[in-house]
Design a protein around this nucleic acid. Structure first.
Lengths: 227, 227
DNA sequence: CGGTGAGTTGAATCGCCTCAAAGGGGGTGG
DNA sequence: CCACCCCCTTTGAGGCGATTCAACTCACCG
């Protein structure tokens, strides 16, 4: 693994709380930080699930591959997100750093042990899993029934909500990543963005590789039928 | 609601065990049975999630609708399956009986109370939610990246596994239901089944409305790329 | 026996994909 | 510091798979 240890792996109290897993019994759990260079794998599908991760900075994609290379990205993990959690004994996705990324991690086992005796931690585990499930359920609707324009609009709204909620976003992922998340090709994503630009629903700031996008959330929302 | 009470709603011990939620503390939880006629709604999206259900007999579809009527079925619930569980305060799907269906149900609230003090129950709740999540993750890959033939092959394999695991199945749901589950149209599903028939991968028994299907699981599996 | 709804099949259309080419941006090495 | 190269992105043209529209069959039911 191309990882670099950037912080202590000391035993610290409150580490569960750091992961959003509020605990009254301040169990001692090892909490480390790791950094992954852009494009490197964090863990692979079918690997034993040893750790649970939280994005400290950067962005992560988690995906499945078919044997012929077709890829479906199930989720993007952004700053603050916890991932690698919703697994049985082994990971069901491969995850990679989209940009240089730093994560915090705790041993999965220590979480399970604490959850055994601490109902609050158990509750939070369930609640996080339920959130993941809800996201997957919404995404099934998108993948099964929405048009390319609706998918891209929904994607932009989701990213705006999660990144800034301000109508100005800098996407960390490529067109190909977006396409594999939305079940489209990168060309179709590009065309949809151009179309939204032509419609005056979004604009680009600067001509940098990963553009900053200004968007009109109301107009986007009208393109993305939810109910 | 077009429901008919077919059994007692008496307080019974072991009712959690009946739902597969093994409990050491045999809490008293009300367990009822309800029957739904073919095509009737069990609960609607956004309704408060008052009960958790287990299919005693029959089959259930659970789906989301877009405002213009496009439908995505997220799951089919067959005999023994528990559904209505993976929700926060309110349901995220509408569920309907596909055929005449009898369900057992427990109040969601009583489950939560027991889970509070019983780590085993809490663990089972988490494990069931994780199973739902895994199904949704696999389905995202299908909806985002598989061809119509691969989708139908995957569907037949899933149904065979869950219904009989014998290579002979009687599908309870219509072509339209299958289509809305697979993100296709009913015509495309029909064409795919005809194609599989022509390829000698499946056969029909009788000419009844909901045919019995004989299938070659090995040949189907070779059409459905997973890894 | 008509009526109805589910299923199959064909023909035409359409949306997205594939293939291709051209335009930058950013990074690297001279 | 600049030139070159590589990769990402955009855009166009053509093709294809799935959808749409339509006709017909068949089981089931009054």
């Amino acid at each position: 693994m191309f990882v670099r240890i950037t912080a202590d792996s000391a035993l610290r109290p409150n580490s569960l709380r750091d992961l959003g897993l509020t605990s009254e019994s301040n169990a001692l759990v090892s909490l480390s930080e790791f950094s992954y260079k852009k494009g490197t794998e964090i863990y692979g599908e079918k690997e034993p699930a040893e750790y649970v991760y939280q994005v400290k900075s950067g962005a992560v994609r988690s995906y499945k591959l078919l044997s012929d290379g077709r890829r479906q990205i199930g989720a993007f993990h952004l700053t603050g997100d916890i991932f690698g959690l919703a697994n049985g004994a082994e990971h069901r996705f491969t995850t990679e750093a989209i940009v240089d990324t730093t994560v915090r991690l705790v041993r999965r086992q220590s979480l399970e042990i604490v959850a055994e005796s601490d109902a609050l931690v158990a509750k939070n585990l369930l609640s996080m899993t339920t959130n993941n499930l809800q996201h997957a359920e919404d995404h099934m609707l998108l993948l099964g029934r929405k048009t390319s324009l609706e998918r891209v609009a929904a994607f932009l709204l989701e990213m705006d909500n999660r990144l800034t909620a301000s109508g100005v976003i800098a996407l960390p992922m490529s067109r190909r990543d977006i396409a594999d998340y939305l079940g489209l090709t990168l060309e179709t994503v590009s065309r949809a963005l151009s179309r939204l630009h032509d419609l005056g629903i979004l604009g680009f700031v600067g001509n940098t590789q990963r553009q900053i996008i200004l968007l009109d959330r109301n107009q986007l929302a009208s393109l993305d039928l939810q109910p």
